[in-house]
C-alpha cells in the first residue's frame, strides 16, 4: 500500500510545474512551511516599517537641508540618478533656529497642557460612564449608549459656531423675546474654551473602550473589594481600573494624541496665533510661514521637536499596554 502511493506521488511530481511542486512542498513539509511563514513575516514587517518610518525620514531630510536648497536643490541620488529625498548639506542649526524665531517651546507647552488636562477629564468621566454601562443594569441603558454613539458621529464643525458664540461671553438671549438670561464668562483665549469641547468630543470613544474593558472584570473582584472596605467608586479606582490598565492606557493615548495634534478648534478659540492665547503646537509650526516666505526646514524641524513628547508618552504607555496584555488572563 505504502509503496504504491509513493510511486504515484513520484510520477505526479514529474508532471508538476515549479509552482505546483513548491506548493506541495510547503503543504507537506513542516520545515518549508516554517520558512515561508518566516519570510512572509519579514515582508509584512518591512512593509509596515517603511510606510510608517518613511515620513519621519523625509521630515529629517527636510530639517537638515538648508531652506534655500529645498526648492532649488538636486534631489537625484548621486550614482543611480533617481530622485529620492536625501539630505542636501547638513544644517542641524535648524533645530536651534526653531526656538529662536518664535517661542516654539511655549506652543509645545500649550498643546501638552491641553492634552494632559483633557486626557485626565476624559479618563475620569469615561471611567464612571464605562463602569455604569459595563457593570450595571438599569432601564434605558441601550438608548443612553446609543445617544453617546450619536454624539460621536456628530461633525465637530457643527458645534463650532454656537460654541464660539458662547465662549465670546455674549449674553444668552431668548430668541424673538429678547429677554437676557445670563452672561456666560468670556472663555476665548483660555484653555477652558478648548478643553471643554475636546473632552466632549473625545469622550464617546473612551467610553466605548472602557465599557468593554470594565465589563470583563469579574464581579467577584468588585464584591471582594466592597466587602473589604471600599465603596463602589473605590472599587472602580482601586481594582477595576488597575486591572483594565491596557484599556485605560489605550483610551489615554488615543485622547492625548488627538488633542495634542488638534488645530481646528484651538485655532479659532485662540483669537491670535500667539502662545499667550493658548495657540497649540500646529499653530506654532504654521507660524514659520508668512506671506512671502515659507521656512520648510524649520517647519520640519519643529514637527520633529513636537513629536518627541508624544514619542516618550507612547513608549511609556506601550510598556504598560504590553505588560497588561502579557500578565496573563484575568483569573479571579
Amino acid at each position: 500500500m505504502a509503496t504504491t502511493t509513493e510511486q504515484r506521488s513520484d510520477s505526479e511530481d514529474a508532471e508538476d510545474g515549479v509552482i505546483a511542486k513548491w506548493t506541495k512542498g510547503v503543504i507537506g513539509d513542516d520545515e518549508k512551511r516554517a520558512r515561508l511563514y518566516r519570510a512572509l513575516f519579514y515582508v509584512a514587517c518591512g512593509f509596515f516599517l517603511v510606510t510608517t518610518l518613511f515620513p519621519f525620514y523625509w521630515l529629517l531630510v527636510l530639517a537638515l537641508t538648508p531652506n534655500s536648497q529645498i526648492l532649488t536643490g538636486d534631489w537625484s541620488l548621486p550614482v543611480i540618478g533617481i530622485e529620492f529625498p536625501h539630505p542636501q548639506g547638513f544644517n542641524p542649526q535648524a533645530f536651534v533656529e526653531v526656538f529662536q524665531q518664535i517661542p516654539f517651546h511655549l506652543y509645545v507647552f500649550n498643546s501638552f497642557v491641553l492634552a494632559t488636562v483633557t486626557t485626565i477629564i476624559v479618563l475620569l468621566v469615561a471611567s464612571l460612564a464605562g463602569y455604569v454601562f459595563g457593570r450595571l443594569d438599569f432601564p434605558g441603558k441601550g438608548p443612553l449608549m446609543l445617544g453617546v454613539l450619536m454624539v460621536s458621529y456628530f461633525p465637530p464643525a457643527a458645534f463650532l459656531i454656537p460654541l464660539f458664540d458662547a465662549f465670546l461671553g455674549n449674553a444668552v438671549v431668548i430668541p424673538f423675546l429678547g429677554i437676557e438670561l445670563f452672561e456666560p464668562p468670556r472663555l476665548v483665549n483660555t484653555p477652558g474654551s478648548m478643553i471643554m469641547p475636546f473632552s466632549a468630543l473625545f469622550l464617546p470613544l473612551a467610553i466605548f473602550i472602557l465599557t468593554t474593558f470594565y465589563a470583563q472584570i469579574p464581579d467577584g473582584l468588585e464584591d471582594a473589594a466592597r466587602v473589604e472596605g471600599t465603596t463602589r467608586l473605590g472599587a472602580l479606582f482601586r481594582v477595576i481600573m488597575p486591572l483594565s490598565a491596557p484599556g485605560v492606557a489605550t483610551a489615554a493615548v488615543l485622547t492625548f494624541i488627538a488633542v495634542y495634534n488638534e488645530y481646528f478648534f484651538s485655532s479659532i478659540m485662540a483669537l491670535e496665533n500667539v502662545p499667550e492665547n493658548w495657540s497649540p503646537l500646529v499653530g506654532g509650526i504654521l507660524s514659520y510661514q508668512d506671506q512671502y516666505t515659507t521656512d520648510f526646514n524649520l517647519m520640519a524641524a519643529a514637527s520633529i521637536v513636537g513629536v518627541i513628547p508624544i514619542l516618550i508618552l507612547v513608549i511609556v504607555a506601550q510598556e504598560r499596554i504590553v505588560s497588561g496584555l502579557t500578565a496573563g488572563g484575568l483569573k479571579e
Binding site: 469579574p218 467577584g220 464584591d223 466587602v227 481594582v239 483569573k331
Partner: peptide, 13 residues
C-alpha cells in the same frame, strides 16, 4: 463582615 468567595477573588494586581 468579611467574605470568602467561591472563585477566590484575589486581586491579581
Amino acid at each position: 463582615v468579611s467574605m470568602v468567595f467561591q472563585n477566590i477573588a484575589l486581586f491579581p494586581h
